[in-house]
Amino acid sequence: MPISVNLDVMLAKRKMQLKELSEIVGVSVVNLSILKQSKVKAIRFSTLEAICEALDCQPGDLLEFIATKEN
């Protein structure tokens, strides 16, 4: 998938557990795990906003476009 989610990187930088983030942003651990694996269909602005606020980062720190050969 060309869009990669760097949630695990940001969690490691902030020394935060997925469960902890889940409690702060109000998104289940299962959903955050799926997001971490870049396997969600879409992400709501409200979720992105909550994660950015909790991790004190920018959306660009979480999402990355990886160019493939077709692109």
Partner: peptide, 8 residues
């Protein structure tokens, strides 16, 4: 429901 649950 499954498809819409993949929108987080």
């Amino acid at each position: 429901s499954f498809e819409s649950s993949l929108i987080v």
